[in-house]
Amino acid sequence: MTTDTGVKSAAAVQSPVRGAAMSTGRAGDKIFVSAARGSGILVLAIMAAIAVFLIWRAIPALQKNEANFLTSEQWDPNGTPARFGIAQLAFGTVVSSLLALLMATPVAIGIALFISYYAPRSVAGPLGYLVDLLAAVPSIVYGLWGLLVLAPHMEGVSSFLNSALGWIPLFGGDNPGKNSIFTASVVLAIMILPIISSISREVFLQVPRAHVEAALALGATRWEMIRLAVLPYGRSGMIGASMLGLGRAMGETIAVAMVLTFVPGINWHILEDGGTTFAANIANSFAEATETGRGALIASGLVLFVITLIVNMAARAVVARRKEFV
């Protein structure tokens, strides 16, 4: 696009009349602005199209559905009659993501503090890069690792948690296993660590030196300085960061799909095998899906899209509010 407008104007510049050259400049400007604005509008159009086409393609399947789409725990869209609902998917998605968030947030903030305030300055940069490497590992590799390396180790952890904390319903149940929602949430926690810690780190970097020095000059220890000057300043940034992490965890597909073993129905005992999420269910059932089946998967994907959209928008709003406040 740029090259072909470039050619046009080069030809025009050679024209002896100066006014013509100037007007071509304006024409070039017009074309270029339209291209740039058009690209921006295309981005908006893509977002709109995602919503429209997912809805459109989901409707026929939803019409054939004989179960309640929101409350049914069944997922049998390929049968006749088709019966499917998202209750189990929503349960698995929310529980595994929240657990992952619970595990990842403190660790990620710890990492951000470590790199910003504890690590010797000469190594802080490389160590930060090391954490960012975690984000470069693709999710399929986390899935493979989670399935073949982590899961066998999680069996012991799960039995321990079950025997020690079994009186808490969430950790209860008779058969703690390794392909459980708990294992999936550990994998998810590892995967969202880098995003939470890198945004937190950015926020910590913006803490004004004056506040840090004010705290230190009062006779604060390093931790007290962090508590007085850093954490209050970075609070909404950290909240936004963990919400972005939550959105990431909810949408993660492959790693979860590989780790979990599908067992139908909602099971509150998260240490037992089973459970599935919106995304994992789509990846696992797509290959065998009939036309109605695909529509049902698209419908469930639409729900996932809306949920992550809300979480992400809320996260952005929180981060944006911080900007105004500062």
């Binding site: 459109w56 990431r248 995304a279 789509i282 899209f305 959209l309 928008m313």
Partner: peptide
């Protein structure tokens, strides 16, 4: 919306292309 797009689950992008 570019920010929002960053958060689109990758599977949803796949579903969109499938649907369209």
């Amino acid at each position: 919306f570019v920010d929002v797009m960053t958060g689109i689950p990758s599977i949803v992008a796949g579903l969109f292309v499938l649907a369209l």
